[in-house]
């Protein structure tokens, strides 16, 4: 079909808008990277946009000489790996059990799960209860409360339901035990949905600072994001005397930028993989008609 004049004009305007939009998103991000490679004192003069004016690795060197950041990195990596493995495992076994039509108590378990999606104890009761479990200043507070998520269980259930029942039935006839069927047939066929759940939970674990902020005050247990939160929030100290200016320590500003860039690298690294599962992750979980 031939394009009308009106369509051509629209396409050009749309193209220009899209370029403008991507610049609005990308420019500020590039600006941060450029700043992090710029000399801290020089950066204070302003006027740095897309490229450092006085190039230096100094900020990165200072950050990487700081031992606290290695410990925080280790905590972040630890909670991400342990969290992803356990969360994905619990999600998979729960979802598989719930897809068995004849599971005794299935309706009851589903109602329980749906309740957890809509009702919660809220911040304070949850805090007090977790405190009584001994989860304050405990590494497992990052892992245990988010092990189970009914959203993720629904996503997996929808995927499992798409696997033909005949595959399981023929394996049963061949004498395979339920465990073998689950481990050797279901799991290998479900790698896309497992990757979706694992990647999303991984990003959650990596980015979460609120759990540490509420439940942890032992700095040795801080993940990278909480360390960064402390740097950002304590760095911005108003000078009460003048009452107006927000003064920031120059060296710590550049360190802060370098830490931010380092912290973001793992997320950017898995981003291409995440992208593969964007739509499946969201639409599999979307409410069915």
């Amino acid at each position: 079909m031939r394009k009308t004049k009106e369509e051509k004009v629209f396409n050009i305007i749309n193209l220009v808008f899209m370029v403008f939009f991507t610049v609005i998103i990308a420019f500020p991000l590039i600006n941060i990277v450029a700043l992090s490679f710029n000399d801290p004192m020089d950066a204070l003069k302003g006027g740095i946009f897309l490229w450092p004016r006085k190039f230096t690795f100094e900020s990165y060197r200072t950050v990487l000489e700081n031992h606290a950041i290695y410990l925080a990195f280790a905590v972040s990596i630890g909670k991400t790996i342990v969290g992803v493995l356990l969360h994905t495992f619990i999600t998979a076994i729960t979802a598989y059990a719930l897809t068995r039509e004849d599971l005794i108590g299935r309706k009851f378990f589903e109602v329980m799960g749906i309740l957890t999606m809509f009702v919660s104890g809220g911040m304070i009761p949850t805090f007090l209860v977790y405190k009584s479990y001994g989860l304050l200043n405990n590494f497992w507070v990052y892992i245990l409360p988010v092990l189970f998520s009914f959203y993720d269980v629904i996503i997996m259930m929808n995927f499992f339901r798409g696997i033909p029942r005949s595959l399981e039935e023929s394996a049963e006839i061949d004498g395979a035990t339920p465990f073998v069927i689950f481990a050797k047939i279901i799991i290998p066929l479900s790698l896309p949905v497992i990757a979706t759940i694992a990647l999303y939970h991984g990003v959650y674990q990596w980015n979460d600072y609120m759990t540490a902020n509420i439940y942890v005050n032992n700095e040795k247990l801080f993940p990278l994001q909480q360390l960064l939160f402390k740097i950002v929030s304590e760095n911005l100290s108003p000078t009460v005397a003048t009452g107006t200016a927000v003064v920031r320590d120059t060296t710590s500003q550049s360190m802060q930028l370098a830490t931010m860039v380092i912290t973001t690298i793992p997320v950017v690294a898995v981003y291409p993989f995440l992208q593969k599962y964007f739509v499946s992750g969201l639409t599999l979980g979307a409410v069915k008609e």
């Binding site: 378990f109 919660s120 007090l128 245990l144 092990l147």
Partner: peptide
């Protein structure tokens, strides 16, 4: 299914009681 049930009780329902 039981690990999930225990997790729900400990981390969702008991806080609701709170």
């Amino acid at each position: 299914i039981w690990p999930a049930v225990i997790l729900m009780i400990l981390f969702n329902f008991i806080p609701m009681y709170g």
